[in-house]
């Protein structure tokens, strides 16, 4: 053991312990890992992306500054304008369907019934499994020749014909059914369908969590006033679930707006570039053709809408005092 006459110098360890007792020091120390990750892998790439979008960078070159040249080119390109429009259309329609059907499913799941817990758990499956893998199953179900939907349609068609006794079995192969992914507008509808299928459980379970916080006596009071089921939904359920609903919808808009996987698997942007979204077009330009500057510019086009949505959400959360 050391024997020292004077008061011992605080060791490094002791000084560290004292420093960490200070909230300001400890705050920054605890934030450091998260901040470091965000700076290196979000903030820096973001700045880099803005810079790339202002250059004519192609894979393997460093690229030269061309100002807004990429953006000029994009606005003159039909594919880009289609992709931008598709993204807005896809997000709007899919979100409406997810919100409405999700609310319906949530109200159903909120009832008391046998196997309620297991039903709630299984309904969430589309949301938890890898999206590309379930989308592969949809790709197979949409197959031009072996689509199970078309087989069923053919079967129903033949049944109907059979009932009326008009046409016999020779015409079995006559009705092929629609080309789900081959026709531009039908392809977009198919992509939306898969997005709704995947996202609906998320809406339903989130709404359900909101429904369960509504005190039952409110419904009892409405019953006493003689309110019908619909009236109760409009005047009790909907106003009370609005805060949750808005947050869920905003969150979903962000994710849907930036969707990549569905189109990448189902159509690759086809037929004839009619189903491209901003994300898949950015991928095709940046990774497929190696036109990095233009790809980065397309991806950045998501920013204004996302920024608007994020600011709206921050404003709303603050106003509601949720956080």
């Amino acid at each position: 053991m050391q024997t020292q006459q004077t008061a011992p110098e605080p060791s490094l360890r002791e000084r560290l312990v004292t420093a960490l007792e200070n909230q300001r020091v400890l705050g920054y120390v605890l934030m450091a890992p998260a901040l470091l990750l965000i700076l290196i892998f979000i903030a820096y790439p973001f700045v880099l992306g803005v810079w790339m979008s202002l250059t004519d960078k192609i894979v393997g070159t460093s690229g030269t500054f061309i100002g807004l040249g990429n953006y000029d080119k994009l606005f003159a390109s039909d594919i880009f304008l289609t992709a931008a429009w598709n993204t807005v259309f896809f997000t709007t329609i899919a979100t409406i369907f997810k919100a409405v059907l999700g609310m319906w499913l949530a109200v159903l799941l909120n009832r008391k019934f046998r196997f309620a817990n297991i039903t709630r758990a299984t309904v969430l499956l589309p949301f938890i499994v890898p999206t590309v893998l379930s989308t592969l199953a949809w790709l197979w179900m949409f197959d031009a020749t072996f689509s199970v939907f078309n087989w069923t349609l053919r079967w129903l068609w033949q049944m109907e014909i059979g009932i009326f006794g008009l046409v016999l079995k020779e015409n079995w192969g006559f009705f092929r059914g629609p080309l789900w992914l081959g026709d531009p507008s039908l392809a977009m509808a198919s992509v939306i369908l898969v997005n709704v299928w995947r996202g609906l459980p998320f809406f339903a379970i989130s709404f359900l969590a909101g429904l369960q916080t509504i005190p039952p006596d409110l419904y009892d009071a409405a019953d006493i006033d003689g309110a019908s089921g619909w009236k109760k939904f409009w005047h009790v359920t909907l106003p009370l679930i609005k805060p949750v609903a808005i947050v869920v919808i905003v969150f979903s808009i962000v994710v849907t707006f930036a969707d990549f996987q569905l189109v990448y698997i189902l159509t690759r942007g086809g037929p004839n570039n009619e189903t491209h979204l901003l994300a898949t077009l950015a991928y095709q330009l940046g990774m497929g053709s190696g036109n990095i500057g233009q790809g980065a510019a397309v991806a950045l086009f998501m920013l204004p809408i996302l920024a608007f949505v994020i600011i709206f959400q921050l404003w709303y959360l603050r106003r509601e005092g949720v956080r």
Binding site: P45, F46, G49, F257, A258, I310
Partner: peptide
């Protein structure tokens, strides 16, 4: 909160560079 809402599709091209 803001980074929470930044989708991977926005950053994947420059992130490839990083």
């Amino acid at each position: 909160f803001v980074t929470y809402l930044v989708p991977p599709t926005l950053l994947f091209i420059p992130l490839t560079g990083v």
